[in-house]
Each structure stands twice: as structure tokens, then as C-alpha cells.
């Protein structure tokens, strides 16, 4: 098991570096550079001004040299300096990451709990109106654009009903502390987390239902039934356990996509996370920030894949033996 993890970690590091190189090339291929953007914001500039900025950012160096400098830093976990924000990228991401993690983790938990529960319910009640209803809701959730739900939810719950704050991370200027602060952030979290979780809730519902039904037709379940085990025991011990395998795979795969979804959710709800940070950094060509966010989110995907594999091994003993 340890050897397996070590091998996967080494592979992950190489994939990460490759992603950084690819994105470095891609983003430098985009028209314009951060010096011009910053000069633009200043409203005036001359050759000297631009030249000074480019020298300061190292943009006057040959491309290969810039790549080499960046990668050398990245290997030592130095993500460089943000031109636009004038601070180290690691610090910037570190500032924003907790907000995104809080948002995505909450969404993740909501969708897994809600999705798996509903999926199990639907599978057990297969063919009844209950099953139809759950499946229909899942289909609609699945077909709904995330940003649109976010807009409609903020309109309904924040503007019309006034129940929940429609934007931001905390009440501006309130400066709560202790429990008040937790409650305040919690209140702000509800809308973005549930809309971000909606799409995945639907996927987990469908996935769980489908794999429960599939597994319950497999031979070993039939054997268990033939042995006279009670249905609830069969469901729990055999069916659900095996049906969770694809769900786990999916969870690992989707962990990375949830960061992408966070761009939209954070935009609509003005949530100060790394999704927004990256979106703004792209139009400003703040190269190091973009690469830093890619680095972090790809690292998270790889980490989740690894966790998935380990979980898989725990849930399905056959795999543990195989490795």
C-alpha cells in the first residue's frame, strides 16, 4: 500500500509540472502582457514606464528563461510574485483558499449526503411515484445551468424573501467575532454552497440509484438472497457497499471540476475565493497568479484521485490484493 502511494505521488508531481509548463506556454501566448494592463490602469504611460515595469517583472527576458525561472521556483514551491497585487502569489492564494475550500467542501458534503441518500431511496422504491419524483428532480437539477440557479436563488431568497444574504462572505463592516462570526459566515454560505452542490447532487442521485440497481442484480447478491439474509442486511452490506464504488470514483473526478464551478458561483455571489481570483488574473495577464491557482487546483484533483484510490482499496478488498 505504501509503495503504491509513493508511486502515485511521484507520478502526481510529474503531472503537476507538466500542467504548469503547458499553462505557462498557453497563458503567455495570449495577447497583451501585465505591464500594458497596469500602464492602462494608470491612464498614461511612455516607453520608459513600460520598460521599467517589464524589467521589474522579468518580462524582458527570453521566453525560455522566464519558463526556467518559474519552474525552478515552482519546484521549490515558490509560486512567484503577483504583478497586479504586488504580493507573493502563495500569500495571495493562501488568503483566498480558505473561502473556496469552505465553499466547495460544503457543497461537496451537501451533494454527497443529499445525492446518495436520495439515490438509495429511489433505488429501494424502484418503480413507485417516489422513485419517479426523485429521478425527475435529479434530471432537472442536472439540466440547469449553475450560474442561472445561482442568479434565481439570490433573487428569490435574498431580494424577494429577504431570508439570506445574497452576496459576500460576511457582513460588511460588522466585524463579528467568535460564534457570531461563524453564524454570519454560515448564513452567507448557504446560497452559494447549495447552488454549487446542486449539479453534483443530481449526479450522485442518478449514479447511486443506477449502481444500486445494477449491483442488486449481480450474482453474489442473488446468492446472499438465496442464503436467506434479510433484505436490509443485503442492502447495507452488499448492495450499498458495492454501489458506492462508482460514486467514490466520481467524487474523486468531480473534486477538480468543483473548483471550475466555483468560478461561476464565486462570480455571482461575490465570494472572495480563488475562482474569482483566477478569473480576474486571466484578464489582467497576472501570469503567476493564474499558474498558482492552476497549480493548487490540479494538486487538489491529484490528491483526491489518490484518496479515491485508497478508499477504493478499503471498500473493495480485491483491489488491495491486486496491488
Amino acid at each position: 500500500m505504501l509503495g503504491f502511494i509513493a508511486a502515485r505521488l511521484v507520478k502526481a508531481v510529474f503531472i503537476l509540472l507538466a500542467i504548469l509548463v503547458l499553462n505557462f506556454v498557453l497563458i503567455h501566448a495570449a495577447p497583451g502582457d501585465p505591464a500594458a494592463v497596469m500602464a492602462g490602469e494608470a491612464g498614461a504611460a511612455d516607453e520608459k514606464f513600460l520598460q521599467d515595469l517589464r524589467e521589474r517583472f522579468g518580462l524582458d527576458q527570453p521566453f525560455a528563461m522566464q519558463l526556467w525561472t518559474y519552474m525552478r521556483g515552482a519546484v521549490q514551491l515558490d509560486l512567484g510574485y503577483s504583478y497586479r497585487q504586488q504580493m507573493p502569489v502563495a500569500e495571495l492564494i493562501w488568503d483566498r483558499l480558505p473561502a473556496t475550500l469552505l465553499l466547495t467542501a460544503t457543497a461537496f458534503v451537501i451533494s454527497i449526503v443529499l445525492g446518495v441518500t436520495a439515490g438509495v431511496l429511489a433505488a429501494q422504491a424502484q418503480g413507485t411515484w417516489w422513485d419517479t419524483l426523485i429521478s425527475a428532480v435529479a434530471l432537472i437539477f442536472y439540466a440547469t445551468p449553475l450560474f442561472w440557479v445561482a442568479l434565481m436563488a439570490s433573487l428569490l431568497f435574498s431580494v424577494v424573501l429577504g431570508w439570506l444574504p445574497g452576496f459576500g462572505y460576511q457582513t460588511i463592516g460588522a466585524n463579528y467575532t467568535g460564534l457570531d462570526r461563524v453564524l454570519d459566515v454560515g448564513k452567507h454560505l448557504i446560497l452559494p454552497a447549495s447552488t454549487l452542490g446542486l449539479f453534483f447532487t443530481a449526479i450522485y442521485m442518478r449514479m447511486t440509484r443506477a449502481s444500486m440497481l445494477e449491483v442488486s442484480r449481480l450474482d453474489f447478491v442473488k446468492t446472499a438472497r438465496a442464503k436467506g439474509l434479510r433484505n436490509s442486511v443485503i442492502q447495507r452490506r452488499h448492495v450499498l457497499r458495492n454501489a458506492l464504488l462508482p460514486v467514490i470514483t466520481l467524487a474523486g473526478l468531480q473534486a477538480g471540476q468543483i473548483v471550475g464551478g466555483a468560478v461561476l458561483t464565486e462570480t455571482v455571489f461575490a465570494w472572495p475565493g480563488i475562482g474569482r481570483l483566477m478569473f480576474e488574473a486571466i484578464s489582467q495577464r497576472d501570469y503567476n497568479v493564474i499558474l498558482g491557482v492552476f497549480f493548487i487546483s490540479a494538486a487538489m484533483v491529484l490528491l483526491f484521485n489518490l484518496v479515491t484510490d485508497i478508499l477504493y482499496g478499503i471498500v473493495d478488498p480485491r483491489i488491495r490484493i491486486a496491488t
Partner: peptide
């Protein structure tokens, strides 16, 4: 390609 956040 699957590791890179696709929307980003």
C-alpha cells in the same frame, strides 16, 4: 487533460 480543471 482530465487533471486540469476543465472550465478554467
Amino acid at each position: 487533460f482530465q487533471t486540469i480543471p476543465s472550465f478554467a
